[in-house]
Structure formats: C-alpha cells, structure tokens
Design a protein around this nucleic acid. Structure first.
Length: 766
DNA sequence: GTTGGTATCTGTGGA
DNA sequence: AGATACCAAC
C-alpha cells in the first residue's frame, strides 16, 4: 500500500480510492475532509493523471492555498499544475481567455461590492426612486440571488412570484433596476462577483466554438470542497462540466463522470447568499444512475467528547439533516465553560481574564486561542481588554487592504487605463484629486452617455459644458490617454508610480500631516511595493498560466483578494473573527461570545424556522472549532447601535445538556481577576496592529552588489544568485525559446526547488 | 464648484 | 456610534 494511504482510516481510504465515477463525501467537523481531498488528488496523480487535468474548487483562497501545499507534500512540484482555486478565481481565469466569445472584453473589470452598490445608487437616483425604499444593499442582494438562480432580467419580469414579492415590499420597479444594472455593467465591460459565475455558465451554455467540450476535455477529474455552500448557479456549472455528449447530442455513456463533492449539511451557513443544502440531496439523486459512491466521515479527530456531544445535541434541534453520528475517541476532556456577564464591557474583561488563566495553566500560545463572534462590530470590547493585558491579537474581517479608500483611488486610475469603459473607476477619479469637475458636470456626462448609449469616457469627449469644465475634462482625458499609451512598453510598477505622481495623489497625501494622512501615504507606498513585487516575481506559482506582468493581470489578481488573505504568521497572536470566517479552522481554546437572543441568533433571523436553523448550524460550526477548551459567554446588556440593549441568553445555550457545562461563578472569579491584573503575561507589542499589507520580502542577496545577467545566458548546471531566494543551482531548463522555465534548487530556503520563468528572471551567474 | 456643518439613517454574514 | 446625504454659505 502506498504510504499516504496508510494515513487514512477505512472510510477515508475508500473515498480516496474510488476515483472513477461520482463520489459524495459527507464529512463531519474535524473528520479529515481536507485530508481526503488532498490525498485523493495526490493519488490521482500517482495513478497517472496529469495534474492539469484535475480541477479542484474551493470557497476561499486560503483553502486553495492550503490544499496545494498539502498536495505538494505528497507529489512535489506537480501540485502547482493542478487547477486548484476558488470558484471565482478559476472562472475569472477562464473568462480572461474566453470572454470575447460572449461579448465581453478579455480585459474586463471586476466590480467589487462597493462598485456594484455605487452603480445601483446611480441607477436609483436617475430613475427618481426613493432611496429609502430602494435600499441599494437590499437591491444588490436581490439581484445577486436572481443571478445565483440563473434568472435573467427578462425571466425576472416574467416570474410572477418575484414580481409579487417586490410589489409587497413596495419595490415594484426592482426588475427595471436589475435590467439597467446588467446593461450598465455590460457597457462598462465589467463583471461583478456573481457575473464571474453567471457569465461562465452562459459561456458553457451557449457554447460558442465548442468551448464546453474544450473544458470538459481538459478537466478529467473535478473536486468540490464545502459543497453545502454552493448555490444553484455553481452547481449548474459543475453539472455542465460533466454533462458529456456524443456527436448526436445524446448523453455519452462511455465517459465516466469523475466528480467528487465533499460537504457537511450541518455546516451550511451561507444560505443567505444563495447556497442551498438541496444541492447535496440533488447530487445524490441525480448521480445515482452513474454508480455513485457515498461515504460518511463520522470520526472527529479534533475535539474532546464534551464538545462533540454538545454539538450533536445542538444540531438535533434542526429539522432537516442527513443522519450521521459524529464521535470522538479523544477522551471526555474539559466541560464547556459558560460565563455570564452584566455588560458587554465585563464580557470583554472576563474573556481576557480567562485567556490569561488558560495561558498560565495550560501554557497555551496566543495562536491556539480564538474569540468568535456573530458580528464584526463585537470585536471592539475584546480588543480593548486584550490590549490592557498586552496580549497580542489580530482582528480578521472588516476592510481588506484593497478596499481602503486611498488604495481603491489609485487602483481606479489603473483600472481606467486598462479599461476606459470602466465607469465606476472613472467616477472615482474624474475629480480626485480636485480638478474642477463637479457633480453637475458629471451628471451631464452621465446623462449624455445614457441617452446615446455610449460610455461615459466617450461622452466626455462630446459633452458641451462651460469653458472651465471643458478644459478640465480635456486635461483629464489627455492625462489618462498618455498613461494608456504607456501600457504596452512600461512595466506595471513604473506606470503606477507615474500615475501616483502625475495624478496629484502623492502630492495631496504628502500635504496631509495628520496621523490618518500618514497612514494613507503608507498604504499607497505599500500598494506600490506590492505592484513592484508582482512585476519582479519570476517564480511560476501556477503552471496552468504562465506569469503575465501586465497591469491588467495585476488588477485581475487583486480583485479577488479578501481581508483573510493577508498571511502574517510570524507573530503569535490571538485570533478574533466572525464565526463565518472561522469555518474550516481549529483552535485549542475557543470563545464563542455574545450568545444572546437577537444577536446570536441574529434578530434578522428570528422570525423564520429556516433562518433559525441556519443560525443553529452557525453555532454548530462555532463550537466545533474547539479542540480542548470551549467557553461560551453572554451579557445581560450591551451597547448596540449607540444605545443600551437588554437581551436574553441565547436559546442555543439551553440546547446543550447541563452535564457538558460548567457555569462559572462570577463573584469568586472577580477576585481572582484583581490578582491577575497586577501581573500581566506576555508583555510585548501592543495588540492593535491594523492590517497593513506585508512589506517587501526578505532578500537573501545584497541588492547593492547584485548584477543580473541576461537570462539567455542561463544554462543547466550553473550556479546562480537570486535576489529573493539566494544562491541556487539550475537543475533543468525546459520550454520554448521565449518561455523557457528553469528549475532551480536554492539551498537556503524551506521549499528549495523553484520553477523560475527565465523571461522575467533576474539571476546573477556565479 | 467647493467646503463644512448638520440631519438622517442604518444596523449580518463574505467571494 | 459611525457613515452618508444634504444643504447653506463661501
């Protein structure tokens, strides 16, 4: 037996070995789901499948990254050639090649949530609708869910149930907004997050140039992680990819559908954004006739028994679920501690106290501890109390680096240069920094564009305005035009620096000497550093697509980044995050806080049984993150929305039987607290480092003396110096003349074998 | 067109 | 509480 197969239990092994035909894996928390997925991929490769024939879809970049790392531990470098990524990133990559077949430019812009909302706000304003009734956020969600269910504006209009709902909520014109929205995105050459899926489906469905067959032939094995969180649209795409047909258009029975989906119905927590558990049930039904293999992973390797049993008890209160029995042999363990506080401030303090206590008694590291909450705004009290003890922590969620205003502003220039049709980018920068093009001019341009069915960029050249405004617009157009001319020759970093300077952004920020202003300046600089890093990185991380240093591909890259993606694991910090973002993670000690009715479960979800079930699954996810210590807390009162609120303890607390619980005594605890205040542990840097992008990588060669040779001179067997990786030896070179790839062994680094694209390589021959 | 101050609203989750 | 929209004054 192959050595990696020995690391699996019987069910896991069966799931890995069942390579041909559809497979459904139901995986309880901590049951080794990722292990099955990664070993399955490794096994496929060991058995002779080419890595690029394997498509592995996940929900987060982090999960994708981890998966690649773990595959490469088994099969080495080939792991990079697997198509592993998020739905959004993989589909964006395909669309970058194929978009012109469905009427989009291949350098299409990706609109983020803010962009989408701004488009909607503009539409609502233009239609003279009441923005308090037509709330942009609500409309966005509704459009998003329409797209997720493959409902076009036309289909929406013809769907009497949807129209009835809109009428009932006093928003009868919603379908018109939807229609406008789609039209505007299209004119702007832009796709929102849902479009990355929706347009890909359209592509496969309309099938121009047999593009469907192309991808069906490429992806011989498909794997989907967190299948319970897929929506109808994602499922439809997956289904399409294995819907093989012969020349007559009949189902092709000779080719087996090698699709493996892994999920847990009990951990479905994204129904609110269109995910549906039905997909698991449908999958089972639909693929039954193709000899489906169903495997249930029920042994939990993560948590002790009190925690596992409590989780089991909680989930039985839900109505629908796939029957399974999660068990653990890790021993009884500690009981779950419940802490009651009078105020949210006290809750913060007592959680920090308990953390100090646990660190003392069990020698836990900060990184083994997490505080999980229902809403991001709850982080504040814990930040304060942890800071008081000098315990290092990190808050996840919130704004990502690329969503900060100043960063988005500079990026908007770059977007506009790449795609002048990008209306949201244009609106962002047309008068930033101030150049005398005010709201009324912009409205006139926008109106002209709408009337003539042209883009705002085009309308800018035709509109008639006052002399002053006309001049200002002329200057602006010339500036952007001059930048655009440079896109071919100049590299992205040089261009971005030029833009920052010539647009006046740098001067504006430099003039601001406030603390925030300096922070903004710093962010701009790290953005530029990041672009530089992107340009200079010559390593092949993803073999399916060779590195591409254009501005356009840079923008594509960052559009799908999220707040969770900034890895910085050199420091030892306590994790603060929402329960949603904690999915898939585990910690020795977990605090689930704010367990109050109207907060967790959220007040938004308290009036329907289905939504309440989802909150319960969320609670289930929360408690199953803990390996050894689980602490549940609630407060009688807390500040919410600027006023004091009084909530009852969460109903979920009563769903755990008392034999698993230990109720902390508030009085005696308070005395101990006083003592500990005097001797804070782990004094060090203050916890509150607001996410700043990790700075330039550690250099292993001295830039002052480093002199790269032309890459044409690099030959096999040479000893070379690389700025980032240091000294190495070229083992092999492959690829055609203009895309030669060197495999180099760098002795000084952890993962020493690297693939370097010689076209971009900076290597000094030693 | 720009600025600054006031009124109003909104309030979950995230790729 | 904080963000945003709106309006009057410059």
């Amino acid at each position: 037996m192959k050595s990696y197969l020995k690391e699996l239990n019987e069910v896991q092994r069966k799931a890995v070995l069942h390579t041909e035909g559809p497979v459904l894996v139901i995986a309880g928390p901590g049951s080794g789901k990722t292990r099955v997925l990664t070993y399955r991929i490794a096994h496929l490769i060991e058995e002779g499948a080419a890595p690029w024939e394997i498509l592995s879809l996940t929900f987060t970049n982090k999960a994708a990254r981890e998966m690649k790392e773990r595959i490469s531990k088994v099969v080495g470098n080939k792991a990079n050639q697997v198509w592993a990524g998020t739905f959004h990133s993989i589909f964006a990559r395909i669309l970058r090649v194929e978009a012109d077949k469905i009427g989009y430019p291949t350098n299409f812009t990706i609109y983020d949530t803010e962009d989408s909302k701004n488009v909607l706000k503009t539409i609502i304003k233009n239609m003279n609708l009441d923005k308090n009734v037509y709330v942009a956020n609500a409309i966005k969600n509704r459009i998003s869910s329409a797209k997720s269910n493959l409902i076009t504006p036309k289909a929406y209009r013809e769907d009497s149930e949807l129209m009835q709902q809109d009428k009932a909520s006093k928003r009868p014109h919603l379908h018109l907004i939807y229609e406008q929205y789609v039209k505007r995105c299209r004119t702007a050459g832009a796709m929102d997050f849902d479009d990355l899926l929706f347009q890909l489906f359209r592509l496969l469905y309309q099938n121009p140039d047999n593009v469907l067959q192309k991808y069906q032939d490429r992806f011989k094995y498909i794997l989907v992680d967190e299948f319970q969180d897929t929506n109808f649209l994602q499922y439809s795409i997956i289904r399409k990819l294995v819907d093989y047909r012969n020349e007559k258009g009949e189902p092709d029975q000779t080719r087996s559908k090698n699709i493996c989906v892994v999920g847990d119905d009990a951990q479905s927590i994204y129904a609110f954004r269109g995910a549906t558990i039905e997909n698991i049930l449908d999958f089972e039904k639909e693929f039954k006739k193709y000899n489906i293999g169903i495997y249930k992973l029920e042994q939990n390797y993560r948590s002790t028994d009190h925690i596992v049993q409590a989780a089991n008890e909680v989930i039985t209160h839900n109505s629908k679920q796939i029957p399974k029995e999660i068990w653990s042999d890790k021993g009884e363990g500690e009981r779950i501690r419940v802490i009651k506080s009078v105020t949210d401030g006290e809750e913060g303090k007592r959680v920090a106290d308990t953390i100090v206590e646990q660190k003392n008694r069990y020698h836990l590291k900060n990184s083994e501890i997490a505080i999980l909450y229902r809403t991001n705004s709850q982080s504040r009290v814990f930040e304060e109390s942890l800071r008081r003890y000098n315990i290092l922590y990190k808050v996840y969620g919130g704004l990502s680096f690329y969503q900060r205003k100043e960063v988005k502003d500079l990026i908007a220039y770059l977007r506009l240069i790449v795609n002048p049709r990008d209306e949201e980018a244009l609106r962002r920068v047309i008068n930033y920094p101030k150049r005398g093009i005010g709201a009324s001019s912009i409205d006139k341009i926008s109106l002209l564009a709408a009337q003539n069915g042209i883009t705002m960029w085009e309308a800018m050249g035709q509109v008639s305005l006052s002399k002053r405004a006309t001049n200002a617009i002329g200057d602006f157009r010339n500036m952007i035009g001059a930048f655009t001319k440079k896109t071919d020759g100049a590299n992205a970093y040089e261009l971005a620096t030029l833009v920052a300077r010539q647009s006046g952004i740098l001067a504006l920020l430099k003039a601001d000497n406030s603390v925030e202003g300096m922070g903004r300046m710093e962010n701009i600089n790290s953005l530029l550093d990041g672009i530089k890093d992107f340009v200079e990185n010559d390593e092949i991380i993803d073999e399916a697509t060779l590195p591409d240093k254009t501005l356009s591909s840079y923008l594509q890259n960052i559009a799908l980044h999220t707040a969770l993606d900034n890895e910085d694991d050199t420091e030892d910090y306590v994790t603060l995050m929402s329960v949603h973002s904690a999915k898939g993670l585990e910690f020795k000690s977990v605090f689930v806080v704010g367990l109050e009715d109207k907060l967790f479960p959220s007040f938004m979800s308290m009036d329907s049984a289905e939504q309440l079930d989802e909150e319960r699954r969320l609670f289930y996810v929360a408690i199953t993150r803990a390996e050894q210590f689980l602490t549940l807390t609630f407060a009688n009162s807390r500040y919410q929305f600027g006023q004091m609120r009084y909530n009852d303890p969460s109903r979920f607390l009563q769903e755990i039987s008392p034999k698993h619980l230990e109720i902390a005594n508030p009085i005696s605890n308070r005395n101990k607290t006083q003592e500990r205040n005097a001797t804070p542990l782990n004094s060090g840097i203050k916890g509150n480092f607001k996410r700043v992008r990790p700075t330039a990588p550690v250099l292993r060669a001295d830039p002052a003396t480093f002199k790269p040779h032309p890459s044409s001179e690099i030959k096999e067997g040479m000893k070379v110096l690389h700025l980032k990786f240091g000294e190495g030896k070229v083992t092999t070179i492959d690829g055609a003349a203009d895309s030669r790839v060197a495999t180099i062994f760098f002795q000084g680094i952890d993962d020493p074998e690297r693939r370097i694209m010689l076209k971009f390589a900076k290597l000094q021959i030693l």
